[in-house]
Simulated scan of single mutants.
Amino acid sequence: MKSFKDKVAAITGAASGMGRTLAVELARRGCHLALSDVNETELVRTAELASAHGVRVTLRRLDVANRADVFAWADEVVRDHGRVNLVFNNAGVALTVPVEHARIDDFEWIMGINFWGVVHGTQAFLPHLKASGDGHVVNTSSLFGLMAIPTQGTYNATKFAVRGFTEALRMELEMEGACVSATCVHPGGIATNIAM
């Protein structure tokens, strides 16, 4: 993919931080957007910023931990935009707690969003990306998906999982000669709402 102009991108976690910045930058480059987040108020603000660049923007309140809702959203994006070329599985949350004191509910909550949200988004959009003839999956891991940090065991577990999942997916797509590839992103410290 050499240009984003007139492509369609779906972005989770688009209400703030990296998701908002990504949406606005893609819009500036002429990419149409399907945006989702659990924070509807800020999602509307992102849409306003992106729409100023003259692209089509659709919105959906979405909990990425809900598999059925993510699959329904993927179908909706294709209905609304005619196709989808990119999915950015960007939604994420953080939790600071020593492993010894982390409750199973903590692990299930963070895994539901950070890992299962990526799995759901990838599996829901992949057939549509392939149908577009020119697609890409971008999954957000973290620097903490490359190195472990004390009190970040739950977060580390999710981000290491995203890394392994995405790297395996990329190899599988290459082996089948697919028109789609996958990239795992490992941002370091960025001033976003995830770590306020």
Rank of each mutant, 00 (worst) to 15 (best):
K2E: 14
K5T: 12
K5N: 12
D6P: 06
V8W: 08
V8C: 07
I11C: 07
A14G: 10
M18H: 06
M18G: 02
L26M: 13
R29E: 14
G30N: 03
G30L: 06
A34D: 05
E48S: 11
L49Y: 11
S51A: 15
A52P: 10
R56V: 10
L59R: 15
R61A: 14
D63F: 01
D63V: 12
N66W: 03
N66Q: 13
D69E: 15
V70G: 08
F71W: 14
W73Y: 15
W73P: 05
V78L: 06
R79D: 12
D80T: 06
D80N: 14
G82Y: 10
F88N: 10
F88T: 04
N89H: 04
N90Q: 09
L95N: 00
L95D: 00
L95C: 00
H101C: 01
D105K: 04
E108I: 04
W109R: 13
I110H: 01
I110Y: 04
I113C: 01
G117Q: 03
G121R: 04
A124I: 05
L126P: 08
H128V: 02
K130C: 07
G133T: 06
G133C: 07
G135F: 08
H136L: 14
T140D: 01
L143R: 09
L143Y: 13
F144Y: 14
L146N: 02
A148R: 11
Q152R: 12
Q152I: 01
Y155S: 01
A157P: 08
T158M: 02
T158H: 07
T166H: 05
A168H: 10
L169E: 08
L169K: 11
R170A: 13
M171Y: 12
E172Q: 12
L173M: 00
M175T: 13
A178F: 03
C179Q: 06
S181K: 09
A182N: 01
C184F: 11
C184L: 01
P187S: 09
P187R: 05
G188F: 12
G189F: 14
I190S: 06
A191F: 03
M196S: 14
